[in-house]
């Protein structure tokens, strides 16, 4: 067996090394779940059936997407960015392993760790305080696949942003722009079903919708049969395309690598 599964396994352990920190994040995520559920409930009371969701769907959406914050790291960022900035990336490049594959493996481990530590609490809190819709076994299985693809897609997007560090030497600008794009176009702020028609169509075609909106629709049973397959294919296609872009950019980046930090 190659090193890649091991890299994921050790990343899982590494990111699980601080359970107190993860618990604090889970509490925060759950709290904002309540806030968002209250806001969306008000919206759906005013406009029942908006975008094909009922009030229970809207509440479930709030807590579910709070659970996904960790696994798809919706706020962006990657440890690799600091390593490029400090020059520690030289260590990574001295290893007999592909840079992108290595960090993908790391990110998969990170996602699994946060899924367990930060994913469950918001859903539990939601179920205790509100009525939430839970999927049947078939929907749950489809949801698991969709979350897996969302993690890949999230990595592919953040890896591209991170590689920009090789050229920009500072990630804050790109980070700020991509944060807004990812929060808005993923459906994290308002579900994309509630977007006005044209904007909604645009948002649903962009990769960020594959991070939150698609998995949420699968969970809520709004995507079955052909719609389910097209949703998963949409996520997979964006993930594959962006991973290939990341490959090409990696090659360009290592060519231009400068002696940063001596």
């Amino acid at each position: 067996m190659g090193v890649i599964p091991w890299a994921s396994w050790y990343a899982l352990r590494r990111y699980s090394a601080y359970p107190l920190g993860s618990m604090a994040e889970a509490v925060t995520n759950s709290f904002f779940g309540v806030v968002r559920a209250a806001i969306l409930l008000a919206l759906w009371h005013a406009r029942p059936g908006l975008g094909g969701y009922d009030a229970t769907d809207a509440v479930t959406f709030s807590f579910l997407t709070q659970s996904l914050i960790g696994p798809v790291q919706i706020f962006g960022g990657m440890e690799l960015a600091q390593r490029i900035r400090s020059g520690d990336v030289a260590i990574d490049l001295h290893r007999p392993v592909d840079l992108q594959a290595w960090w993908l493996a790391d990110d998969v481990g990170r996602a699994m760790s946060t899924l367990v530590l930060r994913g469950l609490p918001p859903m539990v809190v939601g179920a205790l305080l509100f009525t939430v819709r839970l999927p049947d076994p078939g929907e749950a299985a489809a949801f698991a696949v969709s979350v897996g693809l969302a993690v890949l897609l999230s990595f592919a997007l953040r890896y591209l942003v991170t590689l920009a560090m090789f050229w920009l030497h500072d990630e804050r600008g790109v980070q700020a722009v991509t944060l807004v794009l990812s929060l808005f176009f993923s459906g994290m702020i308002i579900p994309l079903v509630a977007f006005p028609e044209t904007l909604g169509d645009v948002a649903r075609a962009l990769p960020w919708s594959g991070l939150i909106q698609v998995p949420a629709d699968v969970f809520l049973g709004h995507r079955t049969g052909g719609a389910l397959l097209s949703g998963l294919a949409f996520q997979a296609a964006w993930a594959a395309g962006l991973l290939v872009a990341g490959r090409l950019l990696t090659r360009a980046a290592t060519r231009r690598l400068e002696a940063q930090g001596g």
Partner: peptide, 26 residues
């Protein structure tokens, strides 16, 4: 390769685990 100012070890893991991961790497 060893850099005095950088480390190849994983900060949050025990040294032994870093070494077993390096074993897998190589």
């Amino acid at each position: 390769v060893v850099f005095g100012q950088r480390t190849t070890l994983w900060w949050d893991l025990p040294l032994r685990d870093s070494l077993t991961l390096v074993r897998r790497l190589y």
